[in-house]
Every structure is written in C-alpha cells, then in structure tokens.
Computed example of a mutant assay.
Amino acid sequence: MSNNGKRYDKEFKADIVRLVREEKRSVGSIVTDFGISQQTVRKWTGESKIRENPDKVIIAELQAEIKAKDKKLADHELTIDILKKATAIFAKDNRK
C-alpha cells in the first residue's frame, strides 16, 4: 500500500509522532498499521524534535539561509563565467 504524493494534515502527523515518542510504538509497527513509509515517520519525528528546541530551530533556519545564499552565489559565479566567455568571443570577433 503506497501513499506516494499523499499529503497528511498536521493533526495526523502529530498523532504519529506521539505514538512513536510517548507510546513507544516502533516505526515498523506504525508503517504496518498506517501504510506510511519508514522514511516519512522518521522525518516527522526528526522535525518534531527540532521544533521542540528553539536553538535547533534557529540553527535550521540559518542553515537554510546559508544554503540559499550559496546557491545564489553559485548562480552569480556561473553568470560571471558566461559573461567572461562572451566578452572574449566578442573581443576576438572585433579584432578581425
């Protein structure tokens, strides 16, 4: 039973996390009972732990910001490389 692409509401996710953390249900039993992948259950429990610790929330936000800035920087560097190559081509054509 695969639920690929299925969206779950916040209440359902919270219930699954509660089963794992408070009732000490195994991830395997939840996978069997609810038809959710192990990866999904582990992701939800990990996200829950992060939200409970304010320091981790700040760190996660900063990491996301750094990742976005790194991507933007890489895009800018690629643009600069392309412009340098284009300039070289046009300079070469103008010499003839």
Results as ranks from 00 to 15, higher is better:
residue 58 I to H: 07
residue 27 V to I: 15
residue 54 P to Q: 05
residue 7 R to Q: 08
residue 22 E to Q: 00
residue 50 I to Y: 15
residue 46 G to P: 14
residue 69 K to A: 07
residue 69 K to I: 05
residue 18 R to Y: 04
residue 32 T to I: 02
residue 62 L to Y: 05
residue 55 D to A: 07
residue 71 K to Y: 04
residue 62 L to H: 05
residue 10 K to M: 04
residue 8 Y to H: 15
residue 71 K to T: 06
residue 63 Q to E: 14
residue 18 R to I: 00
residue 15 D to Q: 08
residue 62 L to T: 06
residue 26 S to L: 08
residue 14 A to V: 00
residue 6 K to W: 04
residue 48 S to E: 09
residue 55 D to E: 08
residue 33 D to M: 05
residue 34 F to D: 03
residue 31 V to M: 14
residue 33 D to E: 15
residue 41 V to D: 10
residue 18 R to K: 08
residue 45 T to D: 08
residue 62 L to V: 02
residue 33 D to V: 01
residue 64 A to C: 11
residue 63 Q to M: 07
residue 63 Q to T: 12
residue 10 K to F: 01
residue 71 K to G: 01
residue 32 T to R: 08
residue 39 Q to G: 15
residue 35 G to A: 03
residue 56 K to Q: 12
residue 49 K to W: 09
residue 72 K to P: 00
residue 60 A to Y: 14
residue 44 W to Y: 14
residue 66 I to M: 15
residue 17 V to G: 11
residue 19 L to E: 12
residue 35 G to Y: 10
residue 5 G to T: 10
residue 10 K to V: 05
residue 9 D to E: 04
residue 48 S to A: 13
residue 72 K to T: 06
residue 8 Y to E: 15
residue 66 I to C: 10
residue 65 E to F: 09
residue 12 F to S: 06
residue 39 Q to I: 02
residue 28 G to A: 06
residue 65 E to G: 04
residue 5 G to W: 12
residue 68 A to F: 06
residue 60 A to N: 15
residue 28 G to D: 12
residue 47 E to A: 04
residue 44 W to P: 15
residue 55 D to N: 13
residue 18 R to G: 01
residue 16 I to C: 05
residue 43 K to R: 14
residue 30 I to K: 11
residue 53 N to I: 07
residue 22 E to A: 01
residue 64 A to P: 03
residue 37 S to I: 05
residue 24 K to Q: 02
residue 26 S to H: 04
residue 20 V to Q: 13
residue 25 R to I: 00
residue 54 P to Y: 06
residue 13 K to R: 15
residue 30 I to A: 09
residue 29 S to I: 03
residue 58 I to W: 09
residue 60 A to S: 15
residue 47 E to I: 00
residue 59 I to C: 11
residue 57 V to P: 08
residue 61 E to I: 04
residue 28 G to N: 12
residue 42 R to W: 09
residue 40 T to E: 14
residue 47 E to V: 00
residue 23 E to T: 01
residue 15 D to C: 07
residue 66 I to H: 09
residue 45 T to G: 04
residue 51 R to G: 01
residue 61 E to T: 10
residue 42 R to G: 00
residue 56 K to W: 11
residue 62 L to Q: 09
residue 13 K to Y: 02
residue 58 I to M: 08
residue 56 K to N: 12
residue 61 E to C: 12
residue 53 N to M: 03
residue 29 S to G: 01
residue 65 E to K: 14
residue 63 Q to S: 14
residue 20 V to H: 12
residue 16 I to N: 09
residue 72 K to F: 10
residue 66 I to V: 07
residue 63 Q to G: 10
residue 5 G to M: 13
residue 48 S to C: 12
residue 7 R to A: 02
residue 43 K to Q: 06
residue 34 F to T: 00
